[in-house]
């Protein structure tokens, strides 16, 4: 039995095989981590200040927000070669891929605009006025709604993806950073970095359903700053990166209560799961590494050194 466990730990199960791709904001590179060996296996150059990172549905293309190059770059993940740029509007920070696999919704941080780009024609098909410093982006699983959060306006903007117009604007706490749909799109979650909360909306009515607060023992509340978050298998638990508190909160998505806190690297911002969601990879900007969390036991397994200021993370099988 011990031997079996050890083998599983060393080799990983076949289901867990894959790669975690991490953007290094201040190195202009992406690091590729093997989810088997938990080591960096490739480092590829990108445009300036890479932040948001996302794969096409079939994982044959990687999209990177190269913020200071004012472009979304398209990379061949098999070779690391940049194939071409997509127009993105100015200073793209985060984006979301529509389920149609064809439209990217991009937050243009400096311009108070959300840009919609057609990946096939490589053209901007719409620009939507949103609040000051748009950042978080999400598209509902059925593709009908896109969300932009604006950091200084403190809102989630609800975009009808058919008309490409706003149909609701909901206030959240200070400096919203990240948005995700959960539970088949029936809920929409938004983190507020300075407010220190995550707001859960009922998607149908765009009304607040719950507000999650955090208390990390021994850390001043001002430093508990939720940024990125991801949902575990079955959307039972949400894993919330708490920035300079250097912890990830495990939130019960039914009760909206925090169940535990996991210590990771410094200034944790975004996260990505491996394929079966048994392991969680966090980007730690200040310590310049990625923490690997064993989800079942809720413990950190390893820190992996990557480039300077790792920012976003994405999984590919």
């Amino acid at each position: 039995m011990i031997r079996l466990c050890l083998a599983a730990l060393l080799l990983g199960s076949p289901a867990a095989a894959g790669e975690i791709w991490v953007t290094n904001e201040k190195d202009d590179t992406v690091s590729v981590i093997s989810t088997d060996t938990l080591e960096v296996i490739h480092t590829y150059p990108t445009g300036e200040r890479p932040r948001g990172i996302i794969f096409s549905r079939d994982f044959s293309r990687l999209y990177i927000c190269a913020s200071d190059s004012d472009a979304v770059q398209v990379m061949d993940p098999d070779t690391g070669e940049i194939l071409h740029d997509l127009p993105s509007g100015e200073d793209p920070e985060q984006f979301a891929l529509h389920p149609d696999d064809r439209h990217l919704y991009i937050a243009n941080e400096d311009d108070a605009i959300t840009t919609v780009v057609d990946i096939e024609t490589r053209k901007v098909v719409a620009q939507i006025d949103v609040g000051v410093e748009p950042e978080g982006m999400a598209v509902s699983p059925d593709g009908r709604i896109a969300i932009t959060t604006s950091e200084t306006t403190n809102m989630a903007h609800w975009i009808d993806t058919e008309t490409r117009e706003l149909f609701a604007n909901t206030l959240v706490d200070s400096r919203p950073r990240h948005a995700e749909f959960a539970k088949d799109g029936s809920e929409m979650w938004v983190s507020a970095e300075i407010g220190g909360t995550v707001t859960v909306f009922d998607t149908a009515t765009q009304t607040e359903k719950a507000k999650i607060t955090f208390e990390v023992p021994g850390v001043h509340p001002d430093r508990v700053q939720p940024v990125g978050f991801e949902f575990g298998a079955g959307d039972q638990f949400a894993y919330v990166a708490l920035g300079p508190s250097n912890h990830v909160a495990v939130v019960n998505a039914e009760t909206y209560q925090v169940e535990s806190y996991i210590l990771v690297g410094r200034r944790v911002w975004h996260l990505a799961f491996n394929e079966d969601r048994s392991r969680l990879f966090t980007t730690n900007g200040v310590s310049g590494d990625v923490t690997v969390i064993d989800v079942a036991s809720g413990t950190a397994l390893k820190s992996i050194k990557v480039g300077r200021f790792p920012w976003g993370a994405a999984f590919r099988p």
Partner: peptide, 18 residues
């Protein structure tokens, strides 16, 4: 989906929606 995007909200012009 019609449930999610009621017509009374989205049918209106953008300014009124805002």
């Amino acid at each position: 989906m019609g449930r999610l995007l009621p017509k009374r909200i989205c049918g209106a012009i953008a300014a009124a929606c805002l």
